[in-house]
């Protein structure tokens, strides 16, 4: 019994690593999503080209290969990352590429009449984006961002391949030490699922908060 509680301790440690990866990866993904999403809508060809290249590259190659590059190949270029840093980098850049398309689509979904009102009120391009377009587009992005974050959570499992001690890694440790597969992998299955539920729930309550007043219901 005490032996099992030690193993559960390992898995909890792994859960913390997975949560850390998910949070930090999501922050990087969010930053990349806005940079590349706005870049794709830029007036400037160079910015559009850079953003498009980034998005196509990271959507077109596997997260697995990207992670190995970040961890094993970058050191040859003089950039040595810890497993956690490499994991955050690969996950953030990969999911950021998908989320950039969400940003772009949401901005494009805002009607022309909103832009025209901004012009009539003499707002500059960036003022209009910052105060009128983005706040409305954000509401459109949120549900899909929730999906992206869950995708990112699930993708964190690949970091076990570069020996970062996340949930999946610890489950394998427990399995090799106990010879039992069912218990550790059922446990992490439940933990991943609960984490995903937490993300859904968090995004949905954020969405409700932001949508307040937009539908004509008394605030």
């Amino acid at each position: 019994m005490t032996q099992w509680s030690g193993y559960f301790g390992l898995i909890l440690q792994g859960a913390l690593v997975t949560i850390e990866l998910t949070l930090m990866g999501s922050v990087l993904a969010l930053i990349m999503a806005f940079l590349a999403g706005l870049g794709r809508l830029s007036r400037f060809f160079v910015l559009r080209a850079l953003a498009t290249a980034y998005i196509e590259f990271f959507r077109g190659t596997s997260i697995f290969v990207q992670l190995f590059w970040a961890y094993f190949v970058l050191p040859f270029a003089g950039i040595s990352l810890t497993p956690l840093q490499a994991g955050v980098l690969a996950l953030g850049l990969n999911v950021g590429a998908y989320a950039a398309e969400v940003v772009r689509g949401a901005i494009k979904s805002i009607g022309r009449e909103q832009y025209e009102a901004c012009t009539a009120l003499n707002l500059g391009r960036w003022q209009a984006m910052r105060h009128i377009i983005l706040p409305q587009a954000l509401l459109v992005m949120l549900p899909t961002f929730g999906n992206n974050a869950i995708e990112l959570l699930k993708a964190t499992a690949v970091v076990s391949l570069i020996s970062l001690a996340d949930l999946t890694f610890q489950a394998q440790v427990v399995r090799s030490q106990t010879g039992n597969t069912l218990v550790p992998f059922s446990t992490i299955l439940v933990i991943y699922f609960v984490l995903a539920l937490l993300i859904s729930w968090g995004v949905r309550s954020l969405e409700r908060r932001m949508a307040r007043g937009l539908d004509g219901v008394r605030v």
Partner: peptide, 11 residues
């Protein structure tokens, strides 16, 4: 300018 469909900022 004032527009036919108001174009208020809904948020």
């Amino acid at each position: 300018m004032v527009f036919q469909l108001f174009n208020l900022f809904p948020h």
